[in-house]
């Protein structure tokens, strides 16, 4: 069945409500912004001496940390969508949407659209704060587009993961299940220093962690020296393909559960 006007109309309706609630309830929007700003202040500010470590050859520590904050903020914005989905099911709005949409995957698309639009605001703020904090940008316009696209793909990955959990549990009590794995994956990547400087157990873990590919790709784009981009995009699209199945199966579970 090909998506029609009704399908996209429903998706936009879900996105509109998501954004409406987000921007009329600061308690929902602000945490998603506070997290990355806190990490930016802590890492790029408090830990800036890490940039002086021998063999730390990235050109600017704030720019180095900004790439992590970009991926982290994008992923967390995706996780928060899972919270919204679970909340909607608890409140009964999930059922309303299931009843009103002829094709229910439009609900998932709607949340994804809403999350992407929310992300623009988050990006503007963290980029602005990073520039004020002394971030030097060596990327060309194309590089920047590529880097922010990696951010968007990270958002979609985390969104599909948390949506899959939200559809299965349909309760905010599943919040830790959505948040913790994403947090752990993010922090098991080379957050503070380049991958080459990692030693001990974290080195092989980081090497196998898919977030590392995204992070390295974003950092190389920021430096205006794109390397490992195919790997980064390949990992991102691979995860999206897998997690889209996870999320859609979760949606089917929610349908069967009533």
């Amino acid at each position: 069945m090909t998506p029609d006007r009704t399908y996209f109309s429903a998706a936009w309706a879900v996105a509109w409500r998501y954004l409406h609630n987000l921007y009329t309830k600061p308690a929902v929007f602000v945490p998603g912004l506070i997290f990355p700003l806190f990490f930016l202040a802590a890492f790029a500010g408090g830990l800036s001496a890490v940039g002086d470590t021998p063999r730390f050859d990235y050109y600017n520590f704030t720019a180095f940390q900004f790439c992590f904050i970009l991926i982290q903020a994008s992923a967390l914005a995706g996780v928060f969508v899972g919270f919204s989905i679970a909340g909607d099911f608890e409140q009964g709005m999930g059922r309303r949407m299931m009843l009103a949409t002829s094709r229910r995957s439009s609900i998932l698309l709607g949340y994804a659209l809403g999350a992407a639009l929310r992300l623009i605001v988050v990006w503007v703020i963290i980029t602005g704060v990073s520039l004020l904090a002394g971030m030097e940008v060596r990327a060309t316009g194309y590089d920047l587009a590529g880097m922010y696209t990696l951010g968007l793909l990270s958002n979609v990955v985390a969104l599909l993961f948390s949506a899959g959990i939200a559809f299965r549990f349909r309760s905010l009590q599943a919040g830790p299940l959505m948040q913790m794995p994403v947090f752990i994956a993010l922090f098991l990547a080379p957050v503070y220093v380049p991958q080459e400087l990692l030693t001990g157990w974290i080195e092989p873990v980081a090497r196998l962690n898919p977030v590392t590919a995204l992070l390295n790709g974003a950092r190389s784009l920021m430096a205006g020296d794109p390397t490992g981009i195919l790997l980064a995009y390949g990992v991102a699209f691979g995860l999206i393909a897998l997690l889209a199945l996870w999320a859609l199966r979760g949606l089917r579970r929610a349908e069967v559960a009533g």
Binding site: T6, A10, W12, W16, H20, T24, K25, R96
Partner: peptide, 16 residues
């Protein structure tokens, strides 16, 4: 958090 009118807007859009 939505008004009555906003609910109608949402529902009419959901139904396309």
């Amino acid at each position: 958090n939505l008004t009555g009118r906003e609910h109608m807007k949402l529902q009419t859009a959901l139904h396309g």
